[in-house]
Design a protein around this nucleic acid. Structure first.
Lengths: 119, 119
DNA sequence: CTCATCGGTAACCGATGAGTTACCAATAGC
DNA sequence: GCTATTGGTAACTCATCGGTTACCGATGAG
């Protein structure tokens, strides 16, 4: 399962947030949620398969840890969706590129950034 | 639908990447994928409901555009999962990278900080 | 007006996913 | 050795999702 699908579930996101504080056992993780332990187990397995978590067997306990490198595709996508790297040859003129670069670093206000051509 | 679930589908991610180059019509977006146009329509509606896209009706055409502010929860999660808060309080957000920018922004009333940070 | 294009909706289907209960293997503690 | 704890697996149910085809309304072009 890819990381995006893994992040689609709110329980799994909560698990990852919990793991961000450090490795944890399954029973401790399961105690924080109203769903059954096998459900947590399955979520953890999914997270492991997605590359977002890693496991370490310690006796009869199992310690899951957050694997941050698995988040690379996510931050990659965010990077891809950032402003506009290439030339938009079809819809926009080439002139607004300069404007876009000026506005690239937003100010302090809470404005939405839509670089539509206002000319 | 929340943005995470919206990003779980590869077609929707591809649509967002396409929209990153600029607004586009439904028929043009659909032409790039082997699935039917109604399927694309549904994906676009989902993306709009998830806050990741916006629509503008222009005559009989419909122009979808990428709405980057809808990605805030995603980059927020990435921020939460970043390295290890040295002494993790985790109750309130706003530590780590954001402190360098906000001096004393008390988030009592509304805490909608919608912006991507430079990862 | 007539017709083609654009695009949303409805109804349906197959696959997948998230949850459950029941069960079992293995380790730790007595 | 016996028992409790930890945690994975199996089998199942139910809901949702992604896709399809068929259809419809609206707009623009001739």
């Amino acid at each position: 399962m890819d990381p995006f699908a893994a992040l689609a579930d709110p329980v799994r996101r909560a698990l990852l947030r919990a793991l961000a504080a450090g490795p944890a056992r399954v029973v401790d993780l399961a105690a924080a949620y109203p769903i059954s332990r096998p459900a947590i187990s399955k979520h953890l397995r999914l997270l492991t398969e997605a590359g977002l978590a890693s496991v370490e067997d310690r006796g009869r306990e199992r310690h899951y840890a957050l694997n941050r490198s698995g988040l690379a595709p996510v931050s990659n996508l965010l990077k891809e969706l950032r402003p506009a790297p290439p030339f938009a040859e079809a819809a926009l003129d080439g002139l607004d590129l300069e404007v876009r670069r000026t506005v690239r670093e937003r100010s302090t206000s809470r404005s939405d950034h839509q670089q539509e051509d206002t000319a």
